[in-house]
Amino acid sequence: MSTAILDAEKIPGQSLDIKTVIPACPIAVYQFRAQRLAELAQESGLAEYFGLLEQLVSAQQKVAALDGLAAKSCFGPEPRLDLTQSKPMALDHFEWGNYWQSVLLELVSELMPKVSAELRIVLKDLVKADADVVQGYAKSMLNGHFAQVPAQYSLFIWAALSVYWSHWAADVAEGLAMVGESHRRLCPVCGSHPVGSVIKDEPRTGLRYLHCSLCETQWHEVRAECTACGESKGVNLWAETETNAAIRIESCDTCKGYTKMFFTDINPKLEVAVDDLATMVMDNHLVEHGYSVTTVNPLLLAHEQDEGFQPSEQPHAKVGDIH
């Protein structure tokens, strides 16, 4: 073995600083998600549903990849955002208009030739529905009232909203990342709930990022703390093996909530939304122990929340907070 003394300038630069926000790259997110859906379809026990999801996510990827005039006519003019307030793309913080509905039309026209006759009827009904009614559905969903939307439409409406939001979110997230802005419980860009925790290899192994269920932004949150209430006492991890489990569930004895954690440093193939759906049997275990889920999965949207359930908007200021 030989050793060499390197000049300080010759050692490759390595930034270990925590990035508070990681902006979404929608095309890459959808491509990765579609791939994982195809991989898990057979063993999920829900092969047909996974097949539909794969078509839908592939359609999302196609629409997200539009550029030039096509993008302009689909996504409309850039929404005017007030970047001085927190969560600039939250429902009530900007005029989001109805351009997302043209995204919905694009998605539906992508899906139409590929789905079964029954689904084609559902999709036709959805695009024929009154624009104001559909706008009302979107508002309900963004407010977390999924039960107010017909269950056969919710998946497609959310998919379209997600493409619209993620299209404009990247720039906002970039700006937030520059100033180190973040938010603990809800997405710092749009104020939505996370899908789950993603444990990353970069910039440091073991950092936890929450993945937004709407705009696909990821934001940093300290480990060993409840992602819903911020309490660090009584945090338990549930996993199949003692160490190196790629999927674990973090439960909190204070708020009785739980969040799934996906260790992409252990299994880089994990996709937060798909693997959450594929491991629903794990949820059963936690529900039996009296815990309830604190996250929203865009591929399921069935986690019915009580009308009164609203996680605290303001993060608690805490001693030793490193943000």
């Binding site: 945090v235 991890l237 199949e240 003692e242 049997v281």
Partner: peptide
């Protein structure tokens, strides 16, 4: 049918 049985171990996480 559940794809397979999950037996979960519970561990306390402390900083």
């Amino acid at each position: 049918a559940a794809p397979r049985e999950y037996k979960l171990l519970k561990a306390k996480e402390t900083r």
